[in-house]
């Protein structure tokens, strides 16, 4: 995956737990864990909006593009 998720770093900077974030934005811990561990295939704009509001950050603080990583094929030509 060439898109890196830095949710753990942003959470650590704000001294916030995943559980607290989950309660604040109404996304389950399971789904936040999927996002945090980089297993997510897609992120809804609504989720990104809620994350940025709760963490008072920009989308670029949570997501970044790493061109050096190996791209994995999902079978439909997208990643």
């Amino acid at each position: 995956m060439t898109i890196r998720v830095s949710l753990d770093k942003v959470l650590a900077d704000r001294d916030m737990s995943l559980t607290a974030l989950s309660e604040r934005i109404g996304v389950t811990i399971a789904n936040l864990s999927i996002l945090k561990t980089g297993k997510a295939r897609a992120v809804r704009f609504s989720t990104l909006d809620a994350l940025c509001r709760a963490l008072e950050c920009q989308p670029g603080d949570i997501l970044s593009f790493d061109a050096g990583s190996v791209q994995t094929d999902t079978g439909d030509g997208t990643e």
Binding site: V27, N31, L32, I34, L35, K39, A40, R41, A42, V43, R44, T47, T74, G75, D76
Partner: peptide, 15 residues
């Protein structure tokens, strides 16, 4: 069915 399974997995892994 392969595409359907793919879409289902994508849906499950959409946050």
């Amino acid at each position: 069915f392969r595409q359907g399974a793919q879409l289902r997995e994508d849906s499950e892994l959409t946050v």
